[in-house]
């Protein structure tokens, strides 16, 4: 089975079950990686940072294509609407105080070689 996307031609055999894989695109070496989204085996097709295409291994189809920013925005489609408060100053203070309380034996040691 072959999968085509733009100038890329994929054979599913080029995708290992684990780890990273290099392959050739018009003679240029590219790298692909995998991670699991929504329980489906996928891979991010290399290209430019800020733009990601997702390949559904089970069907061989490109199922998503959007930037990380768009990814965050679209995530709202997955869950229920609740409230709008992004940051609570009270919670910030509570957590800052918790960190300060749980900090024990805080120390900062300079490295031996000093900046000239």
């Amino acid at each position: 089975m072959k999968v085509f996307f733009g100038d890329y031609e994929f054979g599913l055999d080029v995708f290992p079950q684990t780890g990273l894989k290099e392959y050739k695109n018009k003679g240029k070496t590219e790298v692909q990686f995998r991670r699991s989204l929504t329980g489906t085996d996928v891979t991010s097709v290399p290209g430019y940072c800020g733009y990601t295409e997702i390949l559904d291994f089970s069907t061989g189809q490109i199922i998503v294509a959007f930037s990380p920013g768009e990814l965050v925005r679209r995530s709202s489609q997955f869950v229920q609407d609740v409230s709008m408060l992004p940051i609570s100053e009270e919670d910030e203070e509570l957590i800052d105080n918790l960190i300060a309380r749980r900090s024990k034996n805080r120390r900062i040691q300079p490295l031996k070689r000093r900046l000239k």
């Binding site: 965050v72 995530s75 997955f78 869950v79 229920q80 609740v82």
Partner: peptide, 18 residues
């Protein structure tokens, strides 16, 4: 960033049982 959308996203995710 679009703060309103970002806030909505975070809250929806946090309150999601998933």
């Amino acid at each position: 960033y679009d703060a309103k959308e970002l806030a909505t996203t975070i809250n929806k995710l946090v309150d999601s049982n998933q």
